[in-house]
């Protein structure tokens, strides 16, 4: 009985997770689906063909991915030292440092974006991939730092000391001890950064100034027209990369979890 209940609950959970995707598929591949028809009556791939034949879709996919990958790597590199200090050290002004690092999550991105756009225009960074990457670091860094610092709080520096005593170089220690022990948290932090950057609309729009087109820009433009077919297929294109990335990292994390279990 308990088993049936657990299967049932699991089924409901999967259904909740997958229902929006099914709806996107139903809308994305049909047209003129009006009430009271329970299922689409006219199936078509025409909106999909149109999206794929529009060079903006592929550019948006490419630029969005490029930006998201660079942002994930950069925010990791920037967050790692900060998180280490916050997680392992006690120092004066630590609370203030936390506040500063978390400020971007409470200040509305519109307020940041408008001012930043003017500054970036003066610096010649607006409308460039690099400018958009820098702007995306604002919302991604708090999350990567928080994820990594909580991992560092559970981190035992004595492993590093031991490696040092055994004659390892600082680089060897960093690669073979620090990075290795931090891998699961690093993966999760990168994933956060990737997802936040990938779904940025406002900062990309403001800093990109129309020169940098990513999928969210296309998705928002389509959504403003309210055509369910277009929104459906744009949404499918939009969720595809994150779903693939999550599926991949989930597998890696599970494998890694088994590695750790074997060690102990």
């Amino acid at each position: 009985m308990k088993k049936i209940l657990s299967y049932f609950l699991r089924f409901i959970l999967y259904l909740i997770l997958i229902a929006p995707l099914l709806l996107f598929i139903a809308y994305g591949f049909s047209t003129r689906w009006f009430f009271p028809a329970p299922f689409p009556t006219e199936w078509t791939t025409s909106t999909f063909d149109r999206a794929l034949n529009d060079s903006r879709t592929l550019t948006g996919l490419r630029d969005g991915l490029t930006i998201a990958v660079i942002v994930s790597l950069l925010s990791l590199a920037l967050a790692l030292p900060a998180a280490r200090a916050m997680g392992l050290r006690q120092f004066k002004g630590r609370q203030l440092a936390w506040l500063l690092l978390f400020l971007p999550t409470v200040v509305p991105p519109l307020a940041i974006g408008m001012g930043l756009n003017i500054l970036f225009l003066q610096l010649g960074l607006a409308g460039t991939i690099f400018g958009v990457v820098l702007a995306h670091l604002i919302p991604t860094l708090p999350y990567t730092i928080f994820t990594l610092s909580s991992a560092f709080a559970r981190y035992d520096e004595n492993f590093e000391h031991q490696a040092l005593a055994l004659g390892a170089s600082p680089l060897q220690i960093f690669v073979n001890v620090t990075l290795r022990m931090m891998t699961p948290s690093l993966v999760v932090a990168t994933l956060f950064a990737f997802l936040i950057s990938w779904s940025q609309y406002l900062l990309t729009l403001l800093i990109g100034g129309g020169k940098i087109i990513t999928l969210p820009i296309l998705l928002f433009a389509a959504a403003s027209g309210g055509n369910p077919s277009t929104i459906g297929n744009q949404s499918l294109l939009f969720v595809l990369p994150p779903v693939l990335v999550i599926a991949f990292t989930a597998r890696e994390l599970m494998r890694h979890g088994e590695d750790i279990r074997e060690q102990y």
């Binding site: 903006r56 408008m114 756009n117 003017i118 500054l119 225009l121 003066q122 607006a126 409308g127 729009l205 403001l206 100034g209 129309g210 020169k211 087109i213 820009i217 296309l218 928002f220 433009a221 389509a222 959504a223 403003s224």
Partner: peptide, 27 residues
């Protein structure tokens, strides 16, 4: 063709460029 969700986005871009003194701009 730069697709906008709202034309005011293009106007804001031009106004930001004015404030920053950017010439040539982007629109």
């Amino acid at each position: 063709r730069v697709p906008l969700a709202d034309t005011v986005d293009a106007v804001n871009q031009v106004l930001s460029e004015k404030q920053a003194g950017t010439d040539p701009g982007s629109v």
